[in-house]
Design a binder for these strands. Structure first.
Lengths: 215, 215
DNA sequence: TAGTTCGGAGAACGGTTGTTTACTGGATGA
DNA sequence: TCATCCAGTAAACAACCGTTCTCCGAACTA
């Protein structure tokens, strides 16, 4: 661990990270397609032209933000799904993890929720791809659970997407609830989310016995 | 039906509608917070300053678009929920209606999906409010169905929100699928959506018998 | 130590933006 | 018919934008 990076590259990565941080902050109250290059460099304190040393344009910066924001999700999902509690405990644990994740990285969550259907194609595709990987991991984990016995892969995948969408929506709702001044709003969101996951879990448990026709 | 409006006001509403249409078109490939006032007036073919005769700013135009986009949803939900078929038929009918709605008003759907978490506060709130009314209507309709016997209002509302979110997500996914060149992508989305609704429906049917603790 | 690499600075470019102010001309209503 | 209203026009404003080109100086390499 003597050299590891060199002063040059270390400094470069430092200002690159500063650009990402500044952009993420500014994106709390606007969307990527309206975020200016100069706006970002002004916050960082560097010349506008220095931006090009790190990103070709704002779209490329957006894609980098996607990786930063959704990269950490994978360890999170593993943490949740690894546990072998009962269904009820797992639901509580899941919502709790989402809750703390929202509180720890609010700007990342906001960014993903906003740009998932936002105006920059490259960023949309990056998020879609990442959420797809996410769903695939969830599906793999669901498959190993006893409840999934007799399920075809397509149905497991369908369920996984249902869960992933639900978690993303919950995270976004939680963020909005905390942004508003309303006192018990966040708690309300959490309680509703728990019940929704519970209902899905019940549907899952009775899925096989109710599937008659294929359609 | 002789006068009904007057030439003056009629013309005004006409260019107002032209502004809305032009904006909606431009918003297919960018988000509201980056849409310029001049950009819109240029498409319509009027002077930039004429914009102010109709809207204070782009945010106000956005709110008007929300009403236009989500106003028609209410007749749609009534059409779906009024029918008294079996659960399976109702699911098929629901997805079919969503599908045709997406095909008829793709720009409106795109706009709502994009600005629901977009960068303009007033528009976000308008969408949230409209979806809230939407959920309330769904809840009222669900409550009359026999399956909901013994359900408390809170749980019905919880289910309604689950359905509404699911439909919005499905519509957005359907739109993306059709935008991409992929051939069977739309059909795939529809088939997944049907199964997801079916699973939720099953969970709903077994909800009461499985509810032990209150929590 | 001498030469090269490269992140960042600075100035300048053409173009676009939102907004103001004053004005025009046809529909409106007495 | 005549004064009033008002949707749309035209010009000008300062501010901002993305991008190009040239240059500097510190970190690298040999």
């Amino acid at each position: 661990m003597s050299h590891s990076l060199g002063v040059r590259q270390a400094q470069k990565q430092k200002t690159r990270q500063a650009l990402l941080d500044a952009a993420l902050g500014l994106l709390e109250e606007q969307s990527l397609s309206s975020l200016g290059l100069r706006e970002v460099t002004r916050v960082v304190g560097i010349a506008p032209t220095a931006f090009y040393r790190h990103f070709r344009d704002m779209g490329e910066l957006g894609v980098a933000l996607v990786e930063e924001a959704l990269g950490s999700l994978h360890v999170m999902v593993r943490a949740i799904l690894a546990e072998q509690d009962g269904a009820e405990e797992r639901i509580d644990r899941t919502v709790a993890v989402v809750e703390q994740h929202v509180r720890r990285y609010p700007l990342h969550i906001r960014f993903v929720a906003r740009e998932r259907h936002g105006g920059v194609r490259a960023v949309r595709q990056a998020i879609a791809g990442e959420l797809d990987r996410f769903a695939e991991e969830v599906a793999a984990a669901l498959k190993t659970q006893p409840v999934s016995e007799g399920w075809c892969d397509d149905d497991v995948r369908m369920l996984a997407e249902l869960y992933v969408d639900r978690l993303v929506m919950t995270a976004a709702a939680l963020l909005d609830a905390e942004a508003d001044g309303a006192e018990g709003a966040a708690g309300q969101v959490v309680r509703v989310a728990r019940r929704q996951l519970r209902l899905i879990s019940i549907g899952r448990r009775h899925w096989r016995e109710e599937q008659s026709g294929d359609r």
